[in-house]
Write a protein that binds this DNA or RNA. Structure first.
Lengths: 328, 328
DNA sequence: ATTGTGATTGAAATCGTTTGCACTAAATAT
DNA sequence: ATATTTAGTGCAAACGATTTCAATCACAAT
């Protein structure tokens, strides 16, 4: 079924039918006739022909490291929500944590004529930066503050600073921090800096800090906590760079026969739904993941509609909420 | 940059360049020249022009109710994994549980010339069935056994039957079942039937069963469990239609001052990662979600390549593993 | 009666590929 | 030596929309 056939049935020219769909000048008379023919045939214009002619695809690409993952899937959900209110459709690329694939997807999406890309950021490499610079379509990054690039991210630094401050104010003085790789600027560097800032600026007495680096998993958190408990027996507070890690660390603490929070208090970040399942319930920081997705989409759409011109790079930092539960 | 320009640079005809990419007859000489020109210009053929001409888009649509959700995101992850090994790209439609949107997406994807669709099934309505029948591209359903439609799903019935049997064999005789709406054939009807089958065929003595229906959430599980505890004080075993529900129910049991599993044992299904976070750890049934996604993609590709002709409808039922933990 | 105005209208060009076809030249079979 | 295949080649016609442009028409103003 083509626009020509519909035109024939309605007794008008193809141009008229096109105008019917895209809103050019059209008499009421023909509008009616076309409407009838369209309803009768169930005709819908071919998207690819439209792309060909106009160069606009109505497609937006999303690149995500892992689609299962509390944070990414919530961001995704925000993106999908906002997308639904628009004319755009979503193309998904899942890298499974492979950095080369990230770049491949940018190029593949470019070839598919997406109008914009949302990249859920993890680590920024030089190769990625140049791929982004070469990319002719706008890219918005989530979860990371990549300099010079539009992005929507969380206030990881202050979230961790305040969280740590909260722990210090409850009298804990021998803090352990279980972080993640510094390659991840947001979850790695910023969060660690937040913890350190809180400790360095604390004026209520002497405080010690031991830091270790873990993977993004519960099991890794457990292992690292075991190490810490073996090394420094006086640890009385643990801050973790993710809830996964924290929940694993809780197991280790319990296995070592210590009470939470009596002997050791602990907190994570991410406000995972499992936090309230754990006993004691885990104190955490709520990050606005879904909102992050919505704002990213918003930013991208603005970029696309304004053709990326005369519009300053927008970097949005979202706030956070400390959710105090039993573990602190 | 078009195929024509590259052809000019390489000093050949556009046809030759096309054949270079798609593998028609081509002399080694020209192949070299074209390769050089392509590398030099970084040319990649326009996808939409290709779609226009061939009618094949290389796109596969995925319709998902909620992208965050342990089960759906794992299926999605399987789909993405398998897709990566193919020439296809993924288009995502997230319905947020809206059934009308499910149908809208089928039509929208059809318009976008996807070559096939994977639909993560929840409830099959007459409207959905007719939308699927009218759809000219193949559709594979996951998680549900829709009659006459290719699908990949789990053996919900036997999973629950065996799980319940396991509980009975540990001496529990007053079973409560917290299910979900029967509209969902897999999670609702099949799982309930499995529980009932185990109880009806049990020959080791008298067994009682009380059933209630909950939502798919932890909070709902907690509320329903409170009801049950109020109603029948002798309940000594609880089976839940999801891990979420079970984890919520555990809270209620604990709040009522009962011990798990001493007073009441409990089990769920889904093998969520939070099961091992909970105390006691929750017994559950592992379902092969990721594999489900992989097989769905596999089935769909076969359908597409064979043009959907002369190929019997494939309905794949995947097995399960009962993961016995502390709560049983 | 003539001209000007503004709204409709359809013919035709265009977007960037793929592919059927006709054709050549070389290789093989008769 | 001739006939037949075979591989390689480029021309030109699609694919199905949008959009420019010139033509048409009704109507008002001169």
């Amino acid at each position: 079924m083509t626009i020509r056939e519909v035109a024939d049935i309605a007794g008008v020219s193809p141009s008229a039918v096109s105008r019917y769909f895209n809103g050019g000048p059209l008499s009421e008379d023909k509008r009616k006739k076309i409407q009838k023919a369209v309803k009768q045939t169930g005709f819908a214009p071919s998207v690819s022909a439209k792309i060909m002619r106009t160069g606009k695809s109505g497609q937006i690409g999303v690149i995500v490291p892992h689609i299962h993952s509390d944070s990414f899937s919530h961001i995704m959900s925000g993106i999908a929500d906002r997308t639904r209110e628009t004319k755009y459709i979503l193309i998904l690329g899942c890298t499974d944590g492979d950095r080369d694939r990230e770049i491949e997807y940018i190029k593949a999406m470019e070839r598919n004529k997406v109008e914009g890309i949302i990249l859920m950021g993890t680590v920024m490499t030089p190769a990625l930066r140049s791929a982004m610079e070469e990319c002719p379509v706008p890219i918005v990054v989530t979860g990371q503050n990549f300099s010079g690039v539009p992005c929507v991210y969380h206030d990881d630094f202050n979230a961790m600073r305040e969280l740590t401050g909260r722990m210090l104010s409850k009298g804990r003085r021998n803090i352990a921090y279980i972080g993640v790789t510094e390659e991840d600027a947001a979850a790695g560097r910023e969060r660690r800096r937040g913890v350190e800032a809180a400790i360095n600026s604390f004026e209520g007495g002497k405080v010690s800090l031991t830091s270790v680096t873990a993977e993004f998993s519960s099991e890794s958190g457990r292992l690292k906590m075991q190490e810490i408990l073996k090394r420094s027996t006086d640890t009385d507070g643990v801050i973790c760079a993710s809830d996964f890690i924290a929940l694993g660390a809780m197991s280790a603490i319990r296995e070592a026969g210590k009470q939470i929070p009596a002997d050791i208090s602990i907190a994570g970040i991410g406000d995972s739904w499992a936090d309230v399942i754990a006993r004691p319930q885990l104190t955490s920081v709520h990050l606005y993941y879904k909102q992050c997705g919505i704002e990213a989409m918003e930013t991208l759409i603005q970029f696309i509609e304004k053709n990326g011109k005369n519009i300053p790079v927008r970097q949005i930092m979202l706030g956070y909420d400390i959710i105090e539960r039993e573990s602190l």
